[in-house]
């Protein structure tokens, strides 16, 4: 009888000072992921607002070590040097990176400004490139990176009015993810999660609209989604259960994007 020995492709737990970095950890899906994952992992919480970062840190499990990296990802030119310095000062390595930071400004192309385009691309796409680049670096992170999960969007593969540049930024993220999954294999696995409309603090006012709730329950065969639904997929992708999965886009949207009923 053949017995398969499923060894991880990368040696997880090799680093005692192993950290999981969450960008955009102060609200919505990012904050929910931080609170849940803080029970099992040492976290680096990234955000641009110090007050919100402290608040998120307070919500995290106290059994593990958690650090705050306050940095606005729109400040793209200083991102790699700032992150490198942060890792060196704290003498830690990041093995897992979850990119949750997202900037969405719904505008038709006719009123879209270059500033908004740049901020969207900086926060959603360029920051992910520069963070991954830093984390695979020997000097900055002892090349410790093993796993990346990017929170993308169904806007990456479908279209909607006023989502133009946001869609482009998420599509760029996902396209890069696929090529890096090949380039950085077998050491690093990279995947994207594409959520549909999820109820968070950010969309609370949206979801207070009973008309919209009615429309959404029609569009979403499985009804409304919650941050926990995204967490379950992310938790799977950063675990060894998904050791043979890389370079994929996972749609988690209650069936919204495959629903063609009128």
């Amino acid at each position: 009888m053949l017995t398969a020995v499923l060894l991880p492709y990368n040696n997880q737990n090799q680093y005692e000072s192993m950290y999981l970095l969450i960008s955009g950890s102060t609200s919505g899906i990012g904050q929910y992921l931080a609170v849940q994952l803080s029970k099992e992992y040492n976290l680096i919480l990234n955000g641009r607002n110090g007050e919100k970062l402290s608040k998120t840190l307070n919500l995290c499990d106290k059994g593990k070590q958690h650090l705050i990296w306050k940095f606005d990802l729109n400040n793209i030119e200083h991102l790699d040097s700032n992150l490198t310095e942060f890792l060196q000062i704290n003498n830690i390595q990041v093995t897992t990176f979850i990119h949750c930071a997202g900037f969405l400004k719904m505008l038709p192309l006719k009123t879209m400004s270059l500033n908004v385009i740049q901020e969207t691309m900086n926060t959603n796409f360029f920051s992910s490139v520069m963070i991954i680049k830093t984390l695979i670096n020997k000097k900055a992170n002892d090349s410790a990176l093993q796993n990346v999960v990017q929170i993308s969007s169904t806007a990456s593969i479908r279209g909607a009015k006023a989502f133009n540049i946001y869609s482009a930024s998420k599509g760029a993220m996902d396209a890069m993810m696929r090529s890096l999954a090949v380039e950085l294999a077998p050491k690093v696995r990279l995947n994207s999660v594409l959520p549909g409309g999820v109820q968070t603090q950010m969309t609370d006012t949206m979801f207070n609209d009973s008309e919209l709730i009615e429309k959404m329950s029609k569009d979403y065969p499985l009804g409304l989604g919650f941050p926990h639904d995204i967490y379950e997929m992310v938790n799977f992708l950063i675990s060894e259960k998904s050791r043979w999965i890389t370079g994929q886009q996972f749609v988690v949207d209650g069936g919204r994007s495959i629903n063609i009923s009128a």
């Binding site: 400004k105 719904m106 505008l107 006719k110 009123t111 009015k161 006023a162």
Partner: peptide
Amino acid sequence: DSLTILSIIAH
């Protein structure tokens, strides 16, 4: 149209 309304809201 709805996109112009969106532009006014953003403005």
